[in-house]
Amino acid sequence: MTNMGTSARTPWLVAVLALIGTVWPLIGFSNYHLFQLTLVVVYAIAILGLALLTGFNGQISLGHGAFYAIGAYTTAILMTTWNLPYWATLPVSALVCALVGFLVGLPALRLEGLYLALTTFALAVAVPQVLKYKLFDNYTGGVQGLVIDKPEAPFGLPLSPDQWLFLFTVAVAVVLYIVAWNIVRGRIGRAMMAIRDHAMAAEAMGINLPAVKTSAFALSAMYTGLAGSLGAIAVQFVAPDSFNVTVSLFLFVGLIVGGVASIGGTLIGAAFIEFVPNLADLVSKAAPGAVYGVILIAVMFLMPAGVGGGLYMLWRKMARGNAVATEQPADPGVAPLSTRPAPRMTKT
């Protein structure tokens, strides 16, 4: 179904890899590199949220930066105004974002494909303005934004703040990934994908279309919002202009590069949007955007299932031999692009 779940050994393999991926940086990485890696995990969660909605449920969002911003601001406001500890802000942020996601999901029920993309794009463009709005100044800090303290390692653990933050973020991410994996492989996930592939047929089979679509929206917003919270804690700063339309677009780029309906691919996408700008910045200030754009278009033309989906297919080919792989060239979970109907507004 997803790009990892084909044999019984896979979960163990993933667990061991995750463990190595956590322990090795903790021991061997400098604080700065740990911080970067923390951001990769944060982006991965955000992209996972987007993947749940766009990849698995077929609702295109170009405005997930809005949920990222809401999560970040919820955490920042709770920490500065109410002096809540950072970990206690996460459940609140999850709840707030899920609720907002549900509310956004309601009008989204009536918007298909392109129109949803357009509306969420408008949402993304409008976000900084709302954050700057003077009525909320007391809470949001206006244009200046809010500064939050870096959490220290608890229980006297011999870890630097960066090490602790990395560990904390990874722990949250592991829980979120396990939940997402199970949702996607379970009844709800199948309903989500059925709606993506053919809404009317799904409805005829008894799937409650509005319920599943709005829940998918809420779930997706919750994931991306939690990522925003973790990102705010890691960066220790939120300001309106750090949540402009590019955040939404970069999450979208990460999603496409990783593979729209690939859970493991979200990590690749996240690494891509974290490290490619750093590399491209060496060339010029304009380079990251151009590189993103070129790669986005290239992926669309050459590798529509994303790097995650592409690697998965390659892996399956090697594992099972070419004969089987050509019989079943694409996994339904990773290649939704070819099966979707042409863009049309349905009115029935």
Binding site: I256, L296, I297, L337
Partner: peptide, 16 residues
Amino acid sequence: APVLASVGVFIGLLLI
């Protein structure tokens, strides 16, 4: 192409 592909290319174009 499906909607997602065209949106992807347009966003790519926008960024470029």
